[in-house]
C-alpha cells in the first residue's frame, strides 16, 4: 500500500512559534494555502519582537555572530528544499553567504561605525552604535528568499529584532526560512515572519508606536503611504539593497550614542 504523504500547513512565525493567523484566513500562493496575517497578528509579532529585543541586544557581539553563522549552517542543510521554493540554488547559496558575511560583522561594528572623538577640552568622548530596537521589514517581492535575507541579516546583526512581511506571491521560501530559524540558535521573537497581503499588514506596522524603524525596500506601490504613517513616531525609514551587502546596510538600523566624561584627578 502506498503511503499517503503528510502535507504541511503553512503558518506564521511569531515569538518562535508557528501560529495560524488569528483571523483564521488563508490565501493561495505557489499552489498552497498560506496563512493570511492580520492586524492582530502584526501586533502580536511586534510584542514578541519587543520582548526579545533587550536580551538579543545584550548578547555579546561574538555570540550574535555565532548565531547568525549557525543560521547559515542550517540553511545549507536545507539547500535543496529552499531552492525548490525560491528561484533556485543560486539564490539560496547567495542567501547563505549573506548570513555568513553579516555573521562576521557582528563584532566589528563598533570599530567600523563608532569613534573616539577628539574634543577641545579635558573630556573623554566616544561614539558607539546601538540597535534602534524593533524593525519592521516589507521584504522585496522577489527574489523571495535572498531579498528577505538581505534585509533581515543586517537588521539583526546589530541587535535589532524584526517583524518581516514575506513575499506575497512567493511566501513559501520565507516559511521554510522560518523553520530554519526555529531550529537554529536564534532566540524566539528575534525574527518574526508574517505572510499575507502586504498592503493590508504593512500600514499597521508603519503606524505602530512600538516599532522603531521600517524597511520599505520591498514596499513597491505603498511606499509613500507607509512613510506617512512612519512619521507618527519619527520612525527611521530604510531602503536598502535587495542583492547586496555593506556596513551601511547595517548602520541604517543603528543609532549612535555619544558619551562624554571629564578627565581629571
Amino acid at each position: 500500500m502506498s503511503r499517503l504523504p503528510i502535507k504541511k500547513t503553512y503558518k506564521l512565525y511569531i515569538g518562535g512559534a508557528f501560529p495560524r493567523s488569528e483571523s483564521g484566513r488563508t490565501y493561495e500562493a505557489q499552489g498552497q494555502n498560506v496563512a493570511q496575517g492580520s492586524r492582530k497578528d502584526a501586533r502580536d509579532a511586534v510584542v514578541a519582537a519587543r520582548a526579545a529585543q533587550p536580551k538579543w541586544a545584550g548578547a555579546t557581539a561574538y555570540n550574535r555572530g555565532q548565531v547568525l553563522y549557525r543560521i547559515a549552517e542550517m540553511m545549507e542543510a536545507r539547500l535543496d528544499e529552499l531552492a525548490e521554493l525560491a528561484t533556485g540554488r543560486d539564490e539560496v547559496e547567495k542567501a547563505i553567504d549573506r548570513f555568513v558575511w553579516y555573521a562576521g560583522f557582528a563584532d566589528k561594528l563598533a570599530q567600523a561605525l563608532g569613534s573616539s572623538n577628539p574634543v577641545s577640552g579635558p573630556y573623554f568622548n566616544f561614539t558607539v552604535p546601538e540597535p534602534t530596537g524593533v524593525v519592521a521589514i516589507v521584504a522585496p517581492e522577489e527574489p523571495p528568499l535572498l531579498g528577505l535575507v538581505s534585509r533581515i541579516a543586517p537588521a539583526i546583526v546589530g541587535g535589532n529584532t524584526v517583524v518581516a512581511i514575506a513575499s506575497e506571491q512567493q511566501p513559501l521560501a520565507a516559511i521554510e526560512l522560518a523553520e530554519v530559524l526555529a531550529t537554529s540558535d536564534l532566540p524566539g521573537g528575534v525574527v518574526n515572519i508574517l505572510t499575507g497581503f502586504r498592503a493590508e499588514i504593512a500600514p499597521w506596522l508603519a503606524s505602530h508606536m512600538d516599532v522603531n524603524a521600517i524597511d520599505v525596500t520591498g514596499a513597491e506601490g505603498i511606499r509613500a503611504e507607509l512613510e506617512v504613517a512612519a512619521a507618527d513616531n519619527v520612525k527611521r525609514v530604510v531602503s536598502g539593497a535587495i542583492d547586496g551587502q555593506s556596513v551601511y546596510e547595517i548602520s541604517a538600523f543603528l543609532e549612535l550614542k555619544t558619551v562624554w566624561h571629564p578627565i581629571g584627578v
Binding site: 572623538n117 577628539p118 574634543v119 577641545s120 550614542k257 555619544t258 558619551v259 562624554w260 566624561h261
Partner: peptide, 25 residues
C-alpha cells in the same frame, strides 16, 4: 543620543549630536 556623565551641555564639532526615538534621526 548624547549622554553626559559628570558634566552636562558640552558641545564640540568633533562630537556627533542627535537623537533616538522622537528626538529625530
Amino acid at each position: 543620543g548624547v549622554v553626559w556623565a559628570n558634566t552636562y551641555n558640552r558641545f564640540d564639532p568633533a562630537s556627533p549630536f542627535g537623537g533616538y526615538k522622537e528626538s529625530g534621526f
